[in-house]
């Protein structure tokens, strides 16, 4: 691997995640998956593991697979355990001379399959120390079943199970901070990433996660045009706004050392991220100014804490 990132060179590598899948236009999941898999060295094989999700039903509908590498989907809540099993088989078969070469193990789950129903399985796999990468493509709700709230859904967001009405004001709780929980597992590498700019951030973190021995975790923001209610062409812009408002800070924790990987030149107000998305529309109605204030205060508090932790 060259140490200098070059997008042109990266995209010229043979694609491991091919076109023709059935993900929506303007969906973050596909570009996250291709971005992560592109970080694999050409000569290395991978087994891709997938939790039940939009990604799974859109990329492996019998008899077509979008993956050039081996791939396994088992269930919604067990993708980390599934990856553990493949990795265990690799060690066993390697020891017995039945498998050759380097194989990497990369799991993709949505936030429902990661923050919620697959949380125990993920925690177990991280604690056991399998040599694997778990990638959460975080679109902040159960999108595959039609936009229901998850523990990753942010405060005030409208979903089909947190509707806005005369009494209801969207989700009542704040988003669970899963990345911090994973850091608390004392794994060698954990990071928050987003598909922004020339994908250097996602690529660099993916490469580190894949080629660091032991369990590694990537939490990648993955905008969803259906659930977040934005025009499909705004995908990159929305991801960028999440980062520049510090709603989704980019950082990594390597062997316990916290490091911000991006500091916005000008920290934008949270409103800039919320306004283009239909799921937050009610926050801009007259009389709901307090919602914007609360959302801003929460982001500021989290950001300050992150600055302290990273010593930035």
């Amino acid at each position: 691997m060259s140490t200098v990132y070059n997008l042109k060179r990266e995209v010229e590598k043979p694609a491991r995640f091919t076109g023709g899948h059935r993900l929506c236009a303007g969906c973050g999941a596909g570009i996250v998956v291709s971005g992560v898999l592109r970080a694999l060295d050409n000569e290395d094989r991978a087994v891709v593991v997938n939790a039940t999700s939009c990604l799974e039903v859109s990329t492996f509908m019998y008899p077509y697979t979008a993956y050039m590498d081996s791939y396994i989907h088992s269930a919604f809540e067990n993708s980390a355990a599934t990856c553990s099993g493949v990795e265990a088989a690799y060690h066993a078969l390697k020891r017995r001379g039945k498998v050759e070469g380097t194989v990497k193990f990369i799991t993709f789950g949505g936030d429902g399959g990661t923050y919620d129903i697959g949380f125990q399985s993920l925690s177990g796999a991280m604690e056991r120390g399998h040599d694997m990468v778990y990638v959460c493509y975080d679109n902040e709700a159960y999108m595959n079943t039609g936009i229901q709230r998850s523990s990753s859904t942010p405060h005030f967001a409208r979903t089909t199970t947190t509707p806005v009405g005369s009494v209801g004001q969207g989700k009542k709780q704040n988003k669970k901070d899963l990345t911090e929980i994973l850091v608390a597992h004392n794994i060698p590498y954990a990071a928050q990433a987003a598909p922004i700019g020339n994908f250097k951030d996602l690529h660099t973190k993916s490469y580190k996660a894949i080629y660091t021995e032991g369990p590694c975790f990537l939490n990648v923001l993955s905008p969803c045009p259906r659930g977040w209610d934005y025009p499909t062409e705004k995908l990159a812009e929305i991801a960028r706004l999440a980062v520049d408002t510090c709603v989704w800070p980019l950082y990594e924790v390597e062997e316990g050392v916290w490091r911000l990987t991006y500091i916005p030149k000008k920290k934008l107000p949270v409103e800039d991220f919320l306004r283009p998305q239909g799921r937050f529309r009610h926050m801009f109605e007259k009389g709901n100014e307090w919602m914007l204030e609360e959302a801003q205060a929460y982001v500021d508090q989290k950001w300050e804490r992150l600055l302290e932790r990273t010593g930035a």
Binding site: N78, V86, A88, L93, G124, E127
Partner: peptide
């Protein structure tokens, strides 16, 4: 024995590990 002995956090994961390992060729 030289089995890969995976001490999982639930029976759900023990069967998940078995399914995946068997699919992997073990």
């Amino acid at each position: 024995v030289n089995t890969e002995y995976v001490t999982v956090e639930s029976e759900h994961s023990s069967m998940s590990v078995c399914i995946a390992a068997q699919a992997a060729g073990a």
